[in-house]
Amino acid sequence: MTDAQFEGEHIVAPSSAADDVLRVEHITKSFGPTVALRDINLHLRKGEVLGLLGDNGAGKSTLIKILCGFQKQDGGEMWLKGEDYAPKSVDNARSLGVDCVFQDLALIDELSVFHNMYLRREKLRSPIPFLNNIVMKREARKALDKIGINIPHIDVPVARLSGGQRQAIAVARTISGDADIILLDEPLAAMGAKEGAQILDLIQRIKEEGNVSVVMILHNMVHVLTACDRVNLIQDGVIGLDKPTAETSVEELTEIMVDEYRRARLAAHIGNGAGAAPAEDTAAGA
């Protein structure tokens, strides 16, 4: 069905395999009159790093928010390790092993680094459930050292840290949890070249361990090609391309994205009579 619906040489039907840890079919999501996701079909193999590309407003972040339980889809189904997956909340998704680094990082400026690291999974004392700050500090320090991120003081509010350090903490928080599916919404956005490379190294290391699967939204196509096994391109709320990174190139990805932009421009200028079916869709999205 998905094949027939969208013409064009780049559009590939999502192939599912037995070792898929996450499978998503026909996901739709609208916000009032705005259609964010029209029909998303996606799968993630165990130990794979999947890159999500797409123009601004293509629906990447919405998809991630649905996958991690922060928002609910309007229609469509999801499976996690072969079982129905309908997370009721972020907490629920996390308990099932799916965790997310949000684009806005979900850090609390006023709280310390280690409180942010353990937000919603605090270490408590017993019998009275006070926060066990000593243990959290120690563990947070260990986790950050293991990742190799330099945060000199972990008891200062995160407001005092640089954009890159904040991003690193948000990534470290998710990666040092027990999740086996990690969703990252632009993990390199605020990072300098060196910090960005560190995060990519980290993702490489996770990949080599083979237990964790990653879905990552990226803007930089070179990053996609170096860090990901496979790339999915979201255009107008559908997956417009699904290819192993080894079989594509920066040129091809750029060409598709620019082409889409050209068609949207064209459609906006001459209306819906342009002939090609996607023109109508792109016009709605633009």
Binding site: F70, V90, I108, L119
Partner: peptide, 29 residues
């Protein structure tokens, strides 16, 4: 003061006051 400084109730209060969306994304009700 103990409730505010040393319990989850307290840091969730600070979190929801400081960054409500972020607190919700982190899984705080």
């Amino acid at each position: 003061q103990i409730l505010l400084s040393f319990t989850r109730w307290g840091i969730y209060t600070v979190a929801a006051g400081g960054n409500r969306l972020g607190a919700a994304e982190a899984g705080i009700n």
